[in-house]
């Protein structure tokens, strides 16, 4: 069909690449959420604080987040090679891709968290304050539950973004489907491998988006 011969696709290599992609994605998404969620909450809290010191902290955090978000991801990978080597002892392979993936995605996710929290009705926060809730109680019992649909939507966007980041990370030897597609399709003109790898990535993104949308619908009470 269309002059394509799928018999030459090495399925073992393909499944290994798929597993590598899932490993990179799982580990980097988990770390991104663990770092990005508190960072986003911190951005939200400090931005609207009455204290001049906290607002100063916000400006610094915001500046750092903006810098990390403006550096192209490919450059971030290269720039982080020394740090990655210091952490894992290697700067290539699946482990080698995780620091740049997390550092690239966490500031992005933090901004999405901040935006989701801004959508929470100020009146509800005020009501909790009037009932004697502490800042920590407001975060845990008001901000996070009330913004749950927005947070999950943000997580979905972040994971989907990470899928394309893993493809780029593949270029520095991280492996995975994206790397396979680039090596065979772009560098060796073996369209078949490229097509299969890209289709697998499309299926992955569709699945992730579908799960995210379902969860958002489940948590929406409005």
């Amino acid at each position: 069909m269309w002059g394509l011969d799928f018999s030459m696709v090495d399925w073992e290599e393909m499944s290994q690449a798929a597993i590598d992609t899932l490993k990179m994605l799982g580990a980097s998404a988990l770390l991104t959420f663990i770092i990005g969620l508190p960072l986003g909450v911190l951005l939200f809290i400090t931005a609207r604080s009455n204290s001049a010191l906290l607002r100063f902290i916000y400006r610094i955090l915001s500046f750092i987040v903006n810098i990390l978000r403006s550096v192209p991801f490919v450059i971030l990978i290269v720039a982080l090679i020394p740090i990655t080597r210091a952490i894992f002892g290697v700067s290539i392979g699946v482990e080698g891709t995780i620091p740049p993936l997390v550092i690239g995605a966490a500031p992005f996710f933090a901004r999405l968290v901040e935006t989701a929290l801004r959508e929470v009705d100020r009146g509800v926060i005020e009501a909790a304050t009037s009932m004697g809730a502490s800042t920590f109680q407001i975060i845990r019992k008001v901000l996070l539950p009330e913004s749950m649909p927005g947070l999950i939507a943000g997580m979905t966007i972040t994971v989907v973004t990470l899928v394309s980041y893993t493809a780029m990370a593949g270029m520095v030897g991280g492996g995975g489907l994206g790397d396979l597609a680039i090596r065979y399709g772009y560098q060796r003109y073996e369209k078949e491998v490229m097509i299969v790898a890209v289709i697998l990535m499309i299926v992955l993104v569709q699945l992730l988006q579908m799960i995210g949308d379902r969860l958002v619908a489940h948590f929406t009470r409005k």
């Binding site: 009146g123 509800v124 009501a127 539950p145 009470r221």
Partner: peptide
């Protein structure tokens, strides 16, 4: 000190 509001300000997720 209890307080009630014009727009109720209930937790929509609870």
């Amino acid at each position: 000190i209890g307080m009630i509001f014009q727009h109720f300000n209930l937790l929509s997720s609870a």
